[in-house]
Amino acid sequence: MTSNPPAIRRFDPDRKQRIINAALDVIVEYGVQGTTHRRVAKTAGVPLGSMTYHFDGMDDLLHQAFKQVAVASSSEFVRRLAKAGDREEAVQAIVDIIAGNIWSTPRTLLLSYELYAFAARKPELAAIMREWMQASRAALGRFFDTLTCRALDALVEGMGIHNSVDRSPLDRVEVEDIVRRICGQQ
């Protein structure tokens, strides 16, 4: 009687991250509703079984993928504001973030739309959005009062969304004028 050789398990320490990245690619292409285990596995180049090995279902995968988007986006926002030494530099940082599309790249915007819509249907994911907002507001809080921080945070996201679809997006001078108005620096 011959025995089969033991299966060789391939060491793939980056597999889980590849799956998360693939999930984001699939979300960009098909939306959350069109994101399936099969599409993600195919995009990641992994066996379908890897999906259930690394994640407790599609909600878990989507949660981790959206968490990655939120952390990356808020980290860039925080990093840019951390360079500001005073209120005027903070104003310029906010203008750079909005006018320079630091946050609002087409991919990040699309993923953000999907995250907001998905979180509206899955309240447990709203925590990701709250963490993102808290990080942004804490960075702004070095220079502005709480209410102004909230307004600026909403402006950064809202202006990015508007400029992404507006046929006449605001230019840098207009963005700076609006930021200064919110900051009481007309």
Rank of each mutant, 00 (worst) to 15 (best):
61 L>I: 13
56 D>R: 14
71 V>F: 08
85 G>F: 02
175 V>G: 06
167 R>L: 10
131 E>V: 05
2 T>D: 07
149 C>S: 10
180 R>N: 12
19 I>K: 00
96 D>G: 14
147 L>Q: 12
17 Q>P: 00
180 R>D: 05
30 Y>F: 13
15 R>S: 13
10 R>W: 01
62 L>N: 07
38 R>L: 14
55 F>M: 08
169 P>M: 02
157 E>T: 13
142 R>E: 00
83 K>W: 00
88 E>H: 07
71 V>E: 11
15 R>K: 11
4 N>R: 04
56 D>P: 08
147 L>C: 06
69 V>W: 03
134 Q>Y: 13
67 K>Y: 14
105 T>N: 06
9 R>D: 01
125 L>W: 10
169 P>S: 01
166 D>T: 00
2 T>H: 09
14 D>L: 08
138 A>F: 06
115 L>I: 03
150 R>F: 06
83 K>R: 09
171 D>Y: 09
15 R>I: 05
177 D>G: 10
53 Y>Q: 15
108 T>E: 12
72 A>H: 04
42 K>I: 13
127 A>N: 08
80 R>W: 05
5 P>Y: 01
43 T>N: 09
79 R>C: 13
136 S>Y: 04
156 V>L: 00
61 L>G: 09
38 R>G: 04
176 E>P: 03
71 V>L: 09
71 V>M: 07
163 N>I: 00
148 T>S: 03
133 M>G: 12
155 L>E: 04
137 R>F: 01
41 A>V: 05
